[in-house]
Design a protein around this nucleic acid. Structure first.
Length: 336
RNA sequence: UCACUCUAAGC
């Protein structure tokens, strides 16, 4: 059974869901860990709902849950976006007294943070007798996403004062926060910290720096970080292009689009949003549309509903209602 | 044999 469980886990981590299911079903007995692996796998690779259904089945089988199960079930709630279910699970876990365990509490803070229920997130955070770096990171991430204002900044400063040594995740969250509130001096402080910790080569960090500087309108700095990066991905390019688009420098955005393609980086729908955004602001609409149409052929974008909504919004506001309608017709997903 | 946090886009 050890081998079976390991196999299921491995298949899920490779994205081979069917294979994982087959192995699970073929096991002579499914133990706690089989279920844990299955729930974690579904939550990671599929939908939260599917993971929650496994959990139901597990309870149905009379299998007791442990710490790892709880973490995965909370993750599943987070992914499903079902706040009501999340609260139920929270209540259930508290009853078993598992809610003081750090990974579990951190997952709960993360869940509430992602739902934008920051008061609940803080409540869990405040009740903890001891906190880990992750506890802080998830709370800051929640604030950076849903309420990037004074409170978030205060929280971040408080974290520094508690002599907690930040890691890459802390820096990424902090940079996101200070990009959104456009406080580049604070962002720069993080930049200095990053250099001290020797993390400036990391792609994620680099991208976050580009984004922060770009959002603060400091394109020269953004550009410098961009140039120094040894590897750049579509996010690096898009973040920089978004910055130029924000300043209304549409020509620059188009130049970068050409450049990124010639360097072999494929633009995606987010990139195209930046391009269209830049073009719609300066009446370069036709050009934007030409690019969009040409690139839809060369690079079949794999979109989410979110991407579509955004593009359609841009197209219609720019007056390209026909093209927007056409795109809705082509949508591979159910339009809401 | 399993489990916690992180980056780009329009409104």
């Amino acid at each position: 059974i050890h081998i079976g469980n390991t196999l299921i886990d491995m298949y899920f981590k490779c994205g081979l869901i069917i294979a994982a299911e087959v192995v699970f079903d073929k096991l002579p007995v499914q133990d706690l860990i089989s279920f844990n692996v299955l729930i974690a796998g579904y939550a990671e690779q599929c939908s939260g709902e599917e993971a929650l259904m496994c959990f139901q089945q597990m309870q149905h089988n009379g299998c007791a849950l442990n710490l790892a199960t709880s973490v995965s079930v909370i993750k599943a709630c987070t992914k499903s976006g079902d706040a009501k279910k999340g609260k139920e699970v929270h209540a259930y876990i508290s009853k078993s007294g598992l809610d003081q365990d750090l990974p579990i509490a951190n997952s709960l803070i993360d869940m509430y943070g992602k739902f934008g229920l920051l008061a609940e997130a803080e409540h869990v955070f405040d009740k903890l007798p001891v906190r880990s770096l992750v506890s802080w990171n998830v709370l800051v991430a929640g604030y950076a996403e849903h309420d990037p204002g004074d409170e978030a900044v205060i929280l971040f400063e408080q974290m520094q004062q508690e002599s907690i040594c930040p890691d890459a995740v802390t820096c990424v969250c902090g940079l996101k926060l200070f990009g959104t509130v456009a406080t580049r001096v604070k962002g720069q402080e993080i930049h200095i910290k990053i250099v001290q910790l020797g993390m400036e080569e990391e792609l994620l960090i680099g991208n976050s720096l580009i984004n922060m500087y770009a959002k603060c309108g400091w394109l020269a700095e953004a550009q410098e970080v961009f140039d120094k990066l040894v590897t750049r991905d579509v996010v690096s390019w898009s973040a920089l292009m978004a910055g130029y688009a924000q300043l209304g420098e549409s020509e620059t955005v188009l130049i970068f689009l050409d450049k990124m393609i010639s360097e072999g980086i494929k633009p995606n729908l987010v990139t195209m949003t930046c391009v269209l955004n830049a073009c719609s602001d300066e009446g370069l609409l036709c050009l934007g549309q030409i690019y969009f149409d040409a690139l839809s052929i060369d690079f079949p974008f794999v979109p989410t509903l979110e991407h579509f909504t955004c593009i359609i919004d841009l197209l219609s506001r720019a007056g390209l209602v026909e093209r927007a309608a056409q795109l809705i017709g082509e949508m591979p997903i159910n339009p809401d």
